[in-house]
Design a protein around this nucleic acid. Sequence first.
DNA 1: CGCGGCTTTGATGTTCATCAAGTAAAGTGG
DNA 2: CCACTTTACTTGATGAACATCAAAGCCGCG
Lengths: 228, 228
Amino acid sequence: MKNDCSCEHCKLRSLFFFHTSADVLELMCENKTERQYDKGEVIIWEGSEIKDFIYLKSGLVKLSRKGTDGKDQIISFAKPFDFVSLLSVFSSSIYNYTVTALDSTIICAIDLEKLKAVALKNGEFTMGLMNRVSEATDRIILNNLDIRRKNLKGRVAHVILYFAHYVYKDTRFELPILRREIAEYIGMTTENVIRTMSEFRKDGILKFDGKEIEIVNERLLESVSEHG
Amino acid sequence: MKNDCSCEHCKLRSLFFFHTSADVLELMCENKTERQYDKGEVIIWEGSEIKDFIYLKSGLVKLSRKGTDGKDQIISFAKPFDFVSLLSVFSSSIYNYTVTALDSTIICAIDLEKLKAVALKNGEFTMGLMNRVSEATDRIILNNLDIRRKNLKGRVAHVILYFAHYVYKDTRFELPILRREIAEYIGMTTENVIRTMSEFRKDGILKFDGKEIEIVNERLLESVSEHG
DNA sequence: CGCGGCTTTGATGTTCATCAAGTAAAGTGG
DNA sequence: CCACTTTACTTGATGAACATCAAAGCCGCG
């Protein structure tokens, strides 16, 4: 089955396949599937079998997990160049988290067995993967530790700055998540997230315009993020 | 320089080198160093350069990190078969955490450049490493999420059960860490950890005998860990 | 229109941090 | 060996931070 093989020109190629020979690349390419998801759609269900190695081509997702009490916890957010299919892929046969699109998102899925077969025969390739996995998990762990050091205000400021600096690279953007999801990410209640954001607005740190959010006083917001 | 090469019989060998040919194994073996650390000694300093790939042969360690405010955060504990030199090894050139022996500990250090050279040429080997790294980081992330779901009592119960079930496999053991360190791990204050443990004692859940700790009512402790 | 999910604000109560003070235990130097 | 210092442990009192409960407005959607 012939694939519209555009991998050669995919700018994400360098992420995983930077030491890959032409024939291996072609093999990967023939066994890949691109899928498109709308905002809100679930890409991976917690508990489902891992059949593919998946990464983002474009868009934005959240990784979350259902606690025993039924409440969701958000583990992290990911955009292209962040790894997605990383936490469980090489250590478990089942996903232990759910991946949901926060925006229109395109993913690339590669048959995991075929990828593993290549990895077993190609150390450079596997080493590249390892770097990626390692970086991504490091970021998650360190980010969670950072959040844990902060109080309510600091955590909310942290999240807003995360989207501004890391995702949108702008002080004005449309917040892609609900207040409730911020709460699920930082481990606080929805009401208190809202209250904090209202305070930021009253204090002239933020402005809201529909779904748009604008950081008016970035230095102050950063100070709050650091010192509460 | 000839090494007392006992790797062939090391039971930990299977962890990383289960698909390794005899000559590769010998190469690893010749480039390894075993070191012994006493309780309290620092094995790896946060910020130091990563020169070796390190894993535990015996003992117990904690991974910690200094916050910007100077307070320590404990990331996780590790015993043999848990990975140690994992978080940063393949994604950074500098350790971003400190590793400290909580008990007399023996580590095995392999020159990282030599290990990487082998990894680049041997996909099976690298794949084995990747499994290990992936498992270890998964455990850290999921454990941290579990702790975050719980309140003070639940978190303290969680830690005690962790040592009982996972480390010592006994309801009676010598607690290898200070009350303060429990606090640094679960993100609460030392005083409240002490208060909680005292309550557990008064409620007949725990008994203390010097440094020894005994779980008297395990089912109740598990219930507290789950539901506060 | 009416319903459900998101947002917002206020009032109240619980949980936890902070401050303070004292005991116990362990190391240090004369 | 004993005074001395330091560090861990413990308990109580107080206040701050945060959760919970309640009520209402908003908005998209069948």
